[in-house]
């Protein structure tokens, strides 16, 4: 099992100009580790991080879009894997942090903590996939996650982090969305 912060710190050390879409607990850690204009925090409705990311990937084909999702979140929008498999953006990578719980909602278990997310992705015609459960294995997959022609799907088994809710006020403020638009040159 992997500590989420350590995994995110490792990922952050490889980030250049990618758009990073994150949600809930992963977003809370990410903003503390790597606060930057090219971050996009999925807010408004749980489960839609990958859908936001898909739209961004289509809108900005010159940029890699990375989605840092949660297992509880993905379960609320499993159809997104099918949509992604059909649309198949080449610049899209989706990483699911699996801790088997709704960490942001009090730590209750997800309906099936052993759900095979990589299997779901492969069944949805996303063929570039991986699952890792130790930090060294994740490190070996980072270059693939960032640069392999997409869509790429990864699942990373993590320890449960601090139970939420953590404050989302800072990450959801409108100024951040404006900063992202400015960084992307969108009026």
């Amino acid at each position: 099992m992997i500590n989420r912060r350590k995994a995110l710190e490792l990922l952050a050390s490889h980030i250049t100009d990618e758009i990073v879409v994150s949600t809930y607990s992963t977003a809370s850690d990410w903003i503390e580790i790597f606060d930057r204009p090219l971050n996009y925090f999925s807010s408004g409705a749980m489960g839609l991080a990958s859908s936001h990311g898909l739209g961004l990937a289509l809108a900005r084909p010159e940029r890699r879009v990375l989605v840092l999702d949660g297992d509880g979140s993905l379960l609320m929008n499993l159809g997104t894997l099918v949509t992604t498999g059909i649309v198949a953006p080449r610049n899209f990578s989706h990483l699911v942090f699996r801790n088997g719980s709704y960490e942001a909602n009090g730590g209750h278990p997800i309906p099936s903590p052993d759900a095979d997310f990589e299997g779901h992705a492969r069944a949805a015609n996303i063929h570039k996939t991986f699952t890792v459960s130790d930090l060294a294995s994740f490190e070996k997959k980072i270059d693939y996650f960032l640069h392999e022609e997409g869509p790429v799907f990864g699942c990373i088994a993590i320890e449960q982090g601090p139970l939420g809710p953590r404050s989302y006020k800072e990450m959801y403020k409108g100024e951040r969305r404006q900063a992202l638009r400015a960084a992307l040159g969108v009026g």
Binding site: Y40, H52, G55, A59
Partner: peptide, 19 residues
Amino acid sequence: RVCKEDECLGIAAGLSYGN
């Protein structure tokens, strides 16, 4: 073609970042 209607909101939001 999406699987469920709420997907559309996320995708449309993301698309707006490319005008």
